[in-house]
Each structure stands twice: as C-alpha cells, then as structure tokens.
Amino acid sequence: MNAVEVKNLTKYYRGFTLDHISFSLPGGCIMGLIGENGAGKSTIIKLLLGIIRKDEGSISLFGRGESGRQHLLKDEVGFVLDELKLNCEFRAKNINNIMSSAYRHWNSETFYGLLDKMNIPVSKRIKAMSRGMKMKVGIAIAMSHNAKLLILDEATGGLDPVVRDEVVDMLYEFTRDEEHSVLISSHIVSDLEKLCDYIAFLHHGKLVLCEEKDRLMEQYGMIHCTEKQLSELDCSAVIGKKSNQYGAEAIVRRDAVPKGLDIGPTDIEKLFVFMNRGNHNEEYDKK
C-alpha cells in the first residue's frame, strides 16, 4: 500500500504554478524531494498537510482518499516544518499538554524520552533554544504519536553537521519499522542521498523525475570529454553539462551514449546541479 499517492496535484499562484504533480510513496520507503528554491517542494508538503488548498488533483494517504474526515488521517502523520511553529513562550510541558489533546496515540513518555535523548532541557522556553534544539523538539513531536508517515520540510536546513547527522540517524531508526515511511525535502542533497530510497526532482513547479535512487545511479553517469565530443552526442542523452577551457563534463543517460565512451558514476548532488544547469547551458549554446 502506498503511504502517499498524489495525482495531478496543481496549485496556482501568481507567478508560480505547481503543475500537475503525480507521484506515489510506497509504504516503508523514504522519498526525498529535491529542487531549487521556489521549485515547489514546500508547496507540495503544505498541500499534503492541508495547510493550503489544492486547485486540482487528488491526494491520498494510506490508500484513503479525500473525505470530510481527512483530518483524522493526520493522526498517523508526523511532520516537521522548516521552523518550529509554536509560541516561543512555551515549554516542553505546554507542548506535551497541547499535543496529548490533539493526537489519539500521543505518548508523553516517548516525547520526554526523546527530549532527554537529544539533551533538550524540559524547562527551557522555545525562545531560549537554538535552531538545532527547536528542530529536535519538532522531530520529537513528530515521533511521539506513533505516526506511520513522517513529512519533513527542510528539517535539516540550518543545522550543523553533527546535529544533521543525529537527525539522519533518527530517521533511519524510524524507518526500521517497515510500516513507516518518510517524505523529506531538503537542499542538502547529501543527506537525502544517505537516506532516501526514492528521489523526486522538482524544477519550476514541475516534477522532472521521480525514480528509485539506485535506478537513477544505474541510468545516469558522468562523462569527462572535450567540447567537440560532447557536441557529437545525441541531445537527448545529455541531461546537463558544464564546460570550460580545459574540457567539458556532462551528466548523460547511459543507454543513449555510444559504447566506448568512458562513463563514470555520478551522485544525486551532481545530478541535481547538472539538471538545474542543463537549460542554462542550452540557452548559452544558442547564443
């Protein structure tokens, strides 16, 4: 069963359109949403969480479509937004009090246990916490009500590498249970590369690709060659390229490149950067 299924999801803003996005996240998997600033990652997450309303399309969580009781499904969804959007005067006991009334399966022991594990002082007000601490509180909230799906929007952004690593470990721990799924958006592609089973790449409000990470690695590769060699390749084979006076490097589709050309492995970060640069280069080439 798919934890998330999105079909033709569309949201219109002045100057930006999230354009007919369709993808599904199988249960027990982690999907990373990658895209440049303003690509539509947060819009998708806000639509999934019901913070904003869709204009077209459908969203289904755990195989259950939209109904008047959609809010009840959120009981099984933990979320971490880009900031801990709670009153800065609150302490852990206030948060525990509020959340215990909101979530049917809220577990105070788990919540305080996680705070303790992450060295968050219970008596500290939110306003006195660092960004890293706030994010940890957000993660503790998301993980304290037996959620089956975690949705994280830039949860690792602005965190130092040590805290980021802790967060990644916690997400690993969470997905040990095969019923647990995670949808995470981040600029820090290296984190997603470590974590994700699936990668969804967004560009200007459109879903460019949504694939299993391992398949992406199989499908795409990097070549280092001369400009002339690159220009001889089929246009559809080149995903993105970068050239300078010493030569050119490009991300290519392995199946569309003639045999004999040395294709090296690539990583998600390079794929992401080159895909973003791809169009710019084309425009540059036309000039």
């Binding site: 969480l49 019901g50 809010h71 937004l81 709670l86 909101a102 979530y103």
Partner: peptide
C-alpha cells in the same frame, strides 16, 4: 499571535 508564531500552519497540519 498565531500568524506571527506560525501556529495557524502547525494547527492546520494537526489532526484537528
């Protein structure tokens, strides 16, 4: 206050 703190968004994402 809800707007400033972001509680409107947080609350909307909760099962409420």
């Amino acid at each position: 206050v809800d707007m400033r703190t972001g509680w409107k968004q947080f609350g909307a994402a909760m099962p409420v």
